[in-house]
Design a protein around this nucleic acid. Structure first.
Lengths: 223, 223
DNA sequence: TCAAAAACTCGACCGTGGTCAACTTTTTAT
DNA sequence: ATAAAAAGTTGACCACGGTCGAGTTTTTGA
């Protein structure tokens, strides 16, 4: 009987991730005990650790599965004829929907994903990559339409958008950005990224201000 | 004898933070046991928890102290006549020096600081604020000199710069940005933030590409 | 000055993430 | 078919972060 092990291992691994999804979402990450998770998956506690090296790794794999669905959701919602900035916004808002639903889980994901213990060898990278690639795709279309400078590097531009998005999420977790302001702020960030912060040719143009709760700059002291 | 308690409490609190600095830096955060830390500070384990609610909070206070020194270091190094982009770069590089020295500690700081458990009530906010205010100050000077659009909101612009910086640090932790490329990449990010990603008036201008290790966009498929 | 109250200190104790040596199941080789 | 080897499973066990109630010191106020 060859391959029986192989088969079972795949099933067990999936059972762990599925149990994790259920329990993490129901009870939260911290409040889920590995032993309960193992019970739920129908295996012993020790076995969990022959599939994953830590509780956090289980979370990471779970999230990685969820993300794939998000890109799919985006492709449904997206209006391909809209300005490229709006399309990028749509992509980000799909992600933000998920965050709103699963605040704690998503928070842990960002923590681990943006500041990982070691420069990832993981497949997780692949996932992040694939998400970034969605942005790259949009940027390229923007370049074709001349909404984004076609002489610039698409990847760099995509990263710039992604930077702003990630930090907007951070701002939300920090309490600087209210949920209802997220759309507007992201829109402004994208707009400013495209137009730049320099004084534009038509002289009176004024870039939009972000709406930030609890954050005000120190009053201007004239030197 | 009034105020004796007050006095002792300040000393004890400081002793905890100082011991933490010593041990966290020497042995790392995870490998430092609270009990050792307490011993080092000359108090019992339980007492630690009447000053700080968790191990992480000690770290946060410690970092908060360090940061104040960083702003000071910047003011020394900075050349006030340089273009504003360069000055912002200098500010960021001061911070990055610290990160290079204390990789693990700084990593935990960013995690907690950018994705906190709850929208901070903490004083930690103040620290972050004061750092951001340094950027705001530079932006305002840039506006006076017309290097940055004076009609735009200074705080928003500062946040945009700070976004890029934070995410560059993230890229470094993720292994996308090598230490030796950090200066160049930050310079490009700042430049692109100022100039924008749009096609500029002089037609052939090409914005610089970031130098990213291990990250390549999927090859362009012409649709 | 002294006793009651308040504030503070402490380490035994608890719960949980993660380890490991003993045990079970599957595969390999003859 | 069978025994040895390899692979996989398991829960008792360990270490450490954090809690708590008993004990100690300081403050209050009469």
């Amino acid at each position: 009987m060859s391959g029986k092990r192989e088969q079972n291992k795949r099933l067990t691994r999936q059972a762990i991730v599925d149990s994790a999804r259920m329990l993490f979402i129901r009870k939260g990450f911290e409040l889920t005990r590995i032993e309960d998770l193992a019970r739920q998956a129908g295996i012993g506690k020790g076995t969990v650790y022959s599939y994953f090296s830590s509780k956090e790794q289980i979370l990471i794999e779970m999230i990685s599965e969820e993300r794939q669905q998000l890109v799919a959701r985006f492709e449904q919602r997206n209006d391909e004829s809209a300005p490229i900035g709006e399309q990028i916004l749509t992509l980000f808002l799909c992600q933000f929907d998920y965050i709103l639903e699963h605040r704690e889980i998503a928070r842990l994901m960002y923590r681990e994903s943006l500041f990982p213990v070691k420069p990832s060898i993981h497949q997780r990278h692949q996932v992040d990559n694939s998400y970034l690639n969605a942005v790259v795709g949009l940027v390229r279309r923007g370049q074709q339409r001349d909404e984004i400078n076609p002489n610039g590097d698409a990847l760099s531009a995509a990263i710039i958008f992604y930077n702003h998005y990630s930090m907007a999420i951070s701002g939300w977790y920090m309490g600087y950005i209210e949920s209802e302001d997220m759309t507007m702020n992201l829109r402004h960030l994208i707009e400013m990224a495209i137009n730049g912060l320099h004084r534009s040719t038509d002289n009176t143009s004024t870039s939009p201000a972000l709406k930030l709760a609890r954050l005000t700059a120190t009053p201007l002291e004239t030197p």
